[in-house]
Each structure stands twice: as structure tokens, then as C-alpha cells.
Design a protein around this nucleic acid. Sequence first.
DNA 1: AAGTGGTCTAGACCACACG
DNA 2: GTGTGGTCTAGACCACTTT
Lengths: 231, 231
Amino acid sequence: MLKYQQVADEIEKYIEDHGLQQGDKLPVLESLMARFEVSKSTITKSLDLLERKGAIFQVRGSGIFVRRHKRKGYISLLSNKGFKRDLEEYQLSSEIIQLEARKPTEEAALNLNMEFDEDVYYVKRVRYINGQPLCLEESFYNKSIVPYLNAEIVQDSIFDYIKDALGLKVGFSDLYLHIGKLTEEEARYLQLEKGDPKLYVETIFHLTNGKPFDFSKVSYNYEQSQFFLQG
Amino acid sequence: MLKYQQVADEIEKYIEDHGLQQGDKLPVLESLMARFEVSKSTITKSLDLLERKGAIFQVRGSGIFVRRHKRKGYISLLSNKGFKRDLEEYQLSSEIIQLEARKPTEEAALNLNMEFDEDVYYVKRVRYINGQPLCLEESFYNKSIVPYLNAEIVQDSIFDYIKDALGLKVGFSDLYLHIGKLTEEEARYLQLEKGDPKLYVETIFHLTNGKPFDFSKVSYNYEQSQFFLQG
DNA sequence: AAGTGGTCTAGACCACACG
DNA sequence: GTGTGGTCTAGACCACTTT
């Protein structure tokens, strides 16, 4: 475990344990250095991490303060982990519509940087939150990177499998968002009406080495869609 | 000008000047240190900055690579600068519907952390992109922070005014996104039909010292709304 | 003026990728 | 094994805020 990561976790725990609210002040740098027995650079790196994560903000000449957002029930758009993380309080489940190894569509090949005669896993599923349909998802996984998938894996978290079982490291992702109207098929799966609004998101997930391994197309149920983002 | 910021700019320029594409390799750390005559930590900080910005990605043991997204015409959701920046190639304009100093709504007071008897500037405007209506925006500015606004300022970039003329420093922001259907009034301003889909975003902008100064509610025209996000 | 966070350096050592 | 990026340290000095 990296030191700065560990310190960041402990600081977060400190905030939690002390029930600190938006604007509350954290101990000064020097105290933190002493408390965790690390150098200034390390503490700084921990704090930068927490700042990017949205947990704190630092003000030069003044102090380090807790950052909180008040609203509950919003899904973070940048969870990057198949958003399983943000919704631990909620009941998440999936219904698999389709799961097969096949050749990629032109669109998928392009976004995954693959040749047309290479293989992909194609997964289509509806994801539910508290029993309500949250989104319809179609994903293409580069089979040379993700060589095997089955119903059990897909039912649970594909990303956990990729990380834990395959030992791959997920890096960055590109998201493209559109607003549109539901097609008849989408409406059926999401238990809405054709023409109802939808958020449509295409995401290309890359490994830390920069190779795209997953291209996914997701249509969200507008009634369940509350998203949160920090800038 | 900070050294690491300056170096970051130069590296970005280097990428541009050499026409580097996704996956192209940058010079190794040691070269960069020598070239810019800075320490390893400084180069590292510059590169971290560029990585967060989405311009590069670093792979331990391998190298530093250019990160590019292919698609054009997408607005970055996290521009944080009133998205003026991302769309320099496009024609942006505003039509002011309303501009006045008033008491905040309950909602605005809550989000701006103000008392009900304090004053805000209220701005309502339609923003156009290439002559097409892009969004309808309502904003509330804490008048004790932004003491003066007029049509000329609002017509142009309010954020530029806040930074340049008032000398304030914009820090972080919280965004809450919803999908919904246009009301009749919204549809009229956006030249769409009532019930058409919309992306609705509420944003709370804070200064670097953590004080919220702007609460804004924006409804986007779904036909013009293509957003981009990096994770 | 005192307090507090931010930048920058030089250098030691570690961890991962690739041939 | 060699190359390459990542972590961590100790310390000097700088910039902003608060009193």
C-alpha cells in the first residue's frame, strides 16, 4: 500500500469519525506531518488526492477544509468502476439479455481500435436499482484482452472480475453524452414510453497502458437518472 | 507564472507542434528534466497536471504517451469556465431575458448559503451556438461577492469579469444533472416542443476559499447537446 | 508579523515493462 | 537486466490570509 494513499484513507476516516461538515477545518499541515510521520510532500500528495476526489479543499494561507455535497441519491458520472461503488446503499441487479462472442460492429471495432475479424464479447443487459430499471447497456469487450466471460460474471461486476481475476488495471475512460428520445425497444426494457427522454452515454474504457478494452453504449431511464459531478 | 504550469504549457505546445497522435510517445523524463531545466518533481507535477487534463497518460516502466479523443463538436461538461473555453471554434452568443438585483429564492439562498434578506443578482438568458439555441440559463450571484453586473458584462462572459475585473479566484463546483421534459416556457426559448427531452443541470460555483457565489440552473437543447467527459 | 499552504530542488530507492 | 516512471525525504524559500 502506498503511503500517500494510506494517509489519504486515514484522513478520510478522520473526517468521518469526527463527523466533520462542509467548511470544517482540518489540522494544519505540520500536525498532519507529525501525526502520520511523513514528509511534507507526501502529505501534500495525499491532500491533492482528496481534493481531486472532492473530499476537501485547500486554501493557501488559511487552511484545509472539508468539502461536502448535501444531496443524496445522485450517481457519480465518473465512478469509472461501473458505478457499483457509489450506490452501495442501493440494491443493484442486472438482467442479461444477451451474452456472446462475436465479430465487432464497425462502430465497436473503431472505438476499440480493433480489426473487423478479431473477436469481442458482446453483453446486453438491463440494470436495476431498487427493482426499477435504471439503464439498458450494450458492451463490447476486446476478446484478446478479456478472453472469457460467462453469465455469472456478467450478472455480478464485470470490472471486479477484470481487475481481480484477470489482474488487469483499469486506467482512463472517454465519455460521450447525448440527450435523446427512447426507441420502442429501449422503452420496453426500461418500462417507459417510446419518445420519452433518455440520457445516452458511450464510454471507451482503457487499461492503464492505454489499450481500449471496453466500448459501451448505455441508455438511462430518465426517472431514475440523477447524476453528480465535481469540477 | 508557476514553473510546472509553464512546463505543462510547453509540453502541450510540443505535442501540438509535432502533430502527435493518440499513443505517440513523448521524450523520457530525464530528457524533459534536462530540456526544461527543472527537477524531477517539477516535471512530474507538470505531467500529472496534463494527465488530469486528459492530454497524456503515463505508464510506469514504459513511457509517457499522448492521449487524444477523436470526436469533435462535444462540449466538455467540466469546463468550469462557463464553457466559453471549449468552443472557441464556435459562435457563441447570449440573449438576455432578465437581469436584476433581488432577494434570493429559497432554493437559491439554500444553495448559496445565504440569508433570505441578503441580495443576489438574478440573470436569465438564452445562449446560442452558431445561431441555434443551446440552453436556457438562470443564475443567482451572491451580491456581497459580485456587487455589480450590467447588460454588457452579462452579454459577454460573466466569469471573465469576475476573474479579471473583480480579481476573484474561481475554485470548485458541484454539478447535479437530471434528464427531463421541457416545460412550455423552456420549449419556447429553445425553439422546441413542450415535452421534448432536456438535460437539466444545477451548478453551485465556489471561490477558491470555498464560498459559493453562483447558483445556476440550465436547461439544454437536446439537439445541440453533445457532451464530453474524461474519467 | 505570524500562521499556513504551495513550489521547487537534489537525491535515494522502489516497481513495473520490455526485450 | 536495463530502461523508465513513481514514491518519499529533508529542507529552503515563496505567496497568500489572518490578526
